[in-house]
């Protein structure tokens, strides 16, 4: 070797080249990853308006929102009373019915079991609410998990009453 300083300079040049190159590779890979994220047209389909004027008490409808089912249930007084009388301590995922259904007559929630994503059946199960046939999760009349493998209550999406007959989800 001609002298001792040379290796250091060389190291710097190589390190700089490697580091600079790595940045570029990273930047080039990002578009390839990001292209799989929801695209602009999918993101734009954020809200759906639903006419609920024809739903009888005790009945529900299922609508599609962002590719998933949303249950809109018009609850009877008994069902409301049942949901509101439960002690929070008895719940796996404690949450007040008042927080889940601002307007107690209407329960709007994502009809997706929080276990592995199946769609629960209505009026089934030990708690008069929903029952997921895939792995046996029982939900009550507020859509809260009571028994079975699911860890959480069924989710409440963002929604609002545009007027007395119309709910806007999303």
């Amino acid at each position: 070797m001609s002298d001792q300083k040379k290796p250091k300079r060389r190291d710097f040049l190589y390190t700089a080249s490697y580091a600079f190159g790595a940045v570029g590779v990273g930047a080039a890979i990002w578009p390839l990853i990001d292209q799989m994220n929801p695209d602009a047209s999918v993101k734009a389909l954020a809200s759906t308006e639903v006419d609920v004027s024809l739903i009888e008490p005790g009945k529900s409808i299922t609508v599609l929102w962002r590719g998933k089912p949303v249950f809109i249930k018009r609850r009877t007084q008994e069902e409301i009373a049942e949901a509101r009388s439960v002690e929070l301590d008895d719940l796996i995922d404690p949450e007040k019915d008042e927080d889940r259904a601002k307007n107690p007559e209407w329960l709007v929630m994502l009809g997706v079991c929080t276990h592995l994503g199946c769609v629960p059946l209505e009026d089934k199960g030990d708690y008069n609410g929903w029952f997921c046939p895939c792995h046996g999760s029982h939900y009550d009349t507020s859509g809260r998990i009571r028994k079975g493998p699911a860890p959480q209550n069924m989710q409440i999406p963002k929604y609002e009453f545009v007027n007395n007959n119309t709910i806007k989800i999303g």
Binding site: L13, A16, S17, G21
Partner: peptide
């Protein structure tokens, strides 16, 4: 700009 700078770095690495 990035490619030009990296080309220059690669050029000198190669020369060395």
């Amino acid at each position: 700009i990035y490619l030009i700078i990296l080309s220059i770095l690669a050029y000198f690495s190669m020369k060395r």
